[in-house]
């Protein structure tokens, strides 16, 4: 924020008193450093513990875990395919909805459609969406959203039910709890992430770029699509990937509205199951070593996927903010 002269803190060597390397200042710096390294070390500790406890399942099921769609604690056969499908499908629906809406909001809040004193509270309200606890979204989803979604599903089934993949409808029997409900709720939850980071990126574009485009005769929206969005593209992509990371790992709200049925169905209304929901529902009750191991394996899978997504997003967002400074 402030531009700070970089070397002014260090007094020249011959002006400082005292000599030994174990001055209080050095010790204090060491303590701060150790605390900071401990915070980062938690990540590695976490990876180690989850991988260690997943080992029994990894050696038993191997990579076959990813393509097996049977999850049966009674006969101790565990495969994660249906959960991986549910995780990816619900996040995909969420991204389809949240990316255009989030970008629309970001543009609306950076352009001067309305005076600043109206836009600032709106921006704050969008950010407040991120503060509502996930379980409260779930409660709201069960009692408020599901009845609405069911009505929409009935309508879509009647009008578009004929669209099929392999003889089965995409807009099949309306359920209420299911992939679409989870996707819509996830979209609401990741909207603030996408909208506010995109807004920051758009705001940071130099004014001259916009003025140049307008001076050449482009309209406001031609400027947005051909100048501003291309200039902001990597930051916007970073924001979307951060949103994706949130959606993949989101647990409570999804568990409460997705129907928790391990299946792969062509209909986007059908109940499904995600890795996070599986962990939420079964971890406390698992009592055989194989079952617990399989759950740790699923957790490791989710951890690795979200870790990769977050690292990519972090690298992109970081590069953008470095360019800006």
């Amino acid at each position: 924020m402030q531009t700070q002269p970089s070397n002014q803190l260090e007094a020249p060597e011959n002006l400082t008193a005292g000599g030994g390397s174990l001055q209080p200042d050095t010790i204090a710096r060491g303590v701060f450093l150790v605390a900071a390294l401990a915070v980062v070390g938690t990540l590695f500790w976490m990876a180690f513990v989850v991988a260690r406890d997943a080992m029994p399942a990894i050696s038993k099921f191997g990579l076959g875990f990813l393509v097996n769609s049977t999850w049966d604690p009674v006969v101790e056969e565990f495969g994660g395919l249906t959960f991986v499908f549910g995780t990816i499908a619900s996040s995909a629906i969420a991204m389809l909805l949240a990316v255009p809406v989030g970008l629309g909001i970001a543009i609306f809040l950076t352009e001067d459609f309305l005076p600043e004193w109206i836009l600032t509270p709106i921006a704050f309200m969008v950010e407040l969406l991120a503060a509502i606890p996930s379980v409260v979204y779930g409660l709201w989803g069960i009692f408020v959203m599901i009845p609405i979604v069911r009505a929409v599903e009935t309508f879509l089934n009647q009008t578009l039910g004929w669209i099929q993949i392999g003889g089965k409808s995409i807009f099949g029997v309306p359920y209420g709890p299911g992939l679409l409900t989870a996707g819509v709720l996830l979209a609401i939850m990741i909207l603030p992430t996408i909208a506010s980071i995109s807004r920051d990126v758009l705001k940071a574009i130099p004014r001259s770029l916009r003025n140049g485009s307008l001076a050449l005769g482009a309209t406001r929206w031609e400027t947005i699509f051909r100048v501003l969005l291309p200039a902001a593209s990597s930051g916007v992509v970073g924001a979307c990937i951060l949103g994706l990371g949130r959606a993949l790992g989101e647990t409570m709200a999804v568990t409460m509205v997705i129907g928790n049925t391990p299946q792969i169905d062509t209909s986007i209304f059908a109940p499904a199951y995600t890795i996070a929901a599986l962990l939420a529902n079964e971890f406390a009750e698992a009592n055989t070593a194989v079952h617990i191991g399989a759950l740790f394996f699923a957790a490791l899978l989710l951890f690795v996927i979200t870790l990769l997504v977050n690292i990519v997003a972090e690298l992109i967002v970081r590069r953008v903010s470095l360019e800006r400074n």
Partner: peptide
């Protein structure tokens, strides 16, 4: 960015 459920597993 680590999902809170994974923190629970940890």
């Amino acid at each position: 960015g680590v999902p809170s459920i994974v923190i629970g597993v940890f």
